[in-house]
Amino acid sequence: MTAYSLTEAPAGVANPEVWTRGVPGKVAAGDLWLLSWDGVGAGLGAISARMPGYVLVWPVTLPSEPSHSPALMLETSPLGVPVSIWPTRETGVGDAVLHRRLGHLLAPRLMVAIEDALDEDENPPLPFAHPASDPAQQRVQDEEMIDRWEAICLTQWPAPTATDPRLDREAASSHGLTPTRLSELLKVDASEAVALQLGEVSLAPGQAETIAADLGVAVTDLLTPTRATATAVLLDPAWKDHVLRLAAHRDISEASARDLVATEFALAARSSNSPADLLRAAFARLLGE
């Protein structure tokens, strides 16, 4: 498969406006989504389970792409063409990769029935695609597909180990923390202690725990929640177009654009506005609008 365009429907799609505009709706099981990363359409997937921050999906392919058993054939789709679905190749996909909802594809009960049948090595309630006529070519196509979906699975934002904990200056003060005490506790000089106290720089691993233990409070009572808030809001696919616009504007990767927005949000988040309003303002600042 070549990468999908995000702005032009693949040849043969009968409802191209569905591809280019999408169908508004929440992320939910049974729906068909276009997946993308770094501005490139990476694949099509039917959501088989909604999880916090990610989804499990069944790969879906179009009539213009290779299809063979064990794919199952579905005669109707929101794109106006039959599609192949690949339940045996279910894959975990981070929310950041969800690009555009293309509509409802499969009834959740039907998906469960298919899954149960395949688990028991029985025939599922949809027909298998025909076996490939050329087994050697099928092997190549299978390998390419498995590699591609592994790459989609391993695309992860935010990075699992990425943390940027900062002290919430008001919370720190309210618990009696001072730069002098910080300097003693963390064995840092006065200027660094002030920067830490004001939340201007990140805490190193273990420092938040040291401070919290000294004050007798929970770590979460001391840290600013803003970056975490930005990250959570940014995972909503509704922001995907903004992220890609920023990445193109700055000529940076999608992950870097997301990090940039989260940082911008965190630095300016002390406001009564909603997280969505703050995020919109962060994008506007970064795009120079």
Binding site: M51, Y54, E90, T91, G92, G94, E143, I146, W149, C153
Partner: peptide, 10 residues
């Protein structure tokens, strides 16, 4: 579950 994926039998 996050990293459920296919592994090549070959």
């Amino acid at each position: 579950y996050r990293y459920i994926r296919s592994v090549k039998k070959a």
